[in-house]
């Protein structure tokens, strides 16, 4: 079947099997391999992307269901060579080691921060990332990075 999806601001069209999952449409049809797959059960969150601005697990959505929608992946987070505040914060606070969960963590965090509309406290970040697993960091520095980015994104002082 034919699908047309706006991915990172560009309209992309392709003929796919109905059973094509959004994540494989992104990775294999479009070659956007930044979005990773860590499980088969909608558990790990490595495949998190934005559909119409909201975080979703792209392994649990059909490409057909994204037809006509706007999808943002990790590749679309930096603009004009400028890293997204979350990308900078993950680097600054050492919020990644192997990096495999990182794209999903960043996409989930961005959606979380925008939805909250205010800088996030540690506990809000921890609960808000319940759907993303990381095996390397123990989450400690991920949480620090997301708290810091939420302050930057909502204009709070960095020391708050």
């Amino acid at each position: 079947m034919h699908v047309s999806v706006t991915v990172n601001g560009t309209r992309r069209e392709a003929d796919v099997e109905p059973r094509t999952l959004l994540v494989y449409f992104l990775r294999e049809t479009l070659g956007l391999t930044g979005t990773n797959v860590g499980c088969d059960t909608s558990t790990c969150g490595a495949c998190t992307v934005h559909v119409d601005g909201q975080s979703v697990k792209s392994c649990t959505m059909l490409a057909a269901q994204a037809d006509g929608r706007e999808v943002t992946t990790i590749e679309g987070m930096a603009s004009d060579g400028e890293l997204h505040p979350l990308q900078r914060a993950f680097h600054e606070h050492h919020g990644l080691q192997c990096g495999y969960c990182t794209p999903g963590m960043i996409m989930a965090s961005d959606s979380l921060i925008r939805e909250a509309g205010h800088p996030l406290a540690e506990e809000e970040v921890r609960i808000g990332l319940e759907g993303n697993l990381c095996r390397c960091t123990g989450y400690q520095n991920i949480v620090k990075a997301v708290v810091a980015a939420s302050q930057e994104m909502h204009g709070a002082p960095a020391s708050a």
């Binding site: 909608s42 969150g45 998190t48 559909v51 909201q54 975080s55 979703v56 697990k57 649990t60 959505m61 989930a108 959606s111 979380l112 939805e115 808000g128 319940e130 759907g131 993303n132």
Partner: peptide, 9 residues
């Protein structure tokens, strides 16, 4: 129910 991503979909 689930997690934020699950609840979005």
């Amino acid at each position: 129910v689930g997690d934020p991503q699950v609840r979005h979909r």
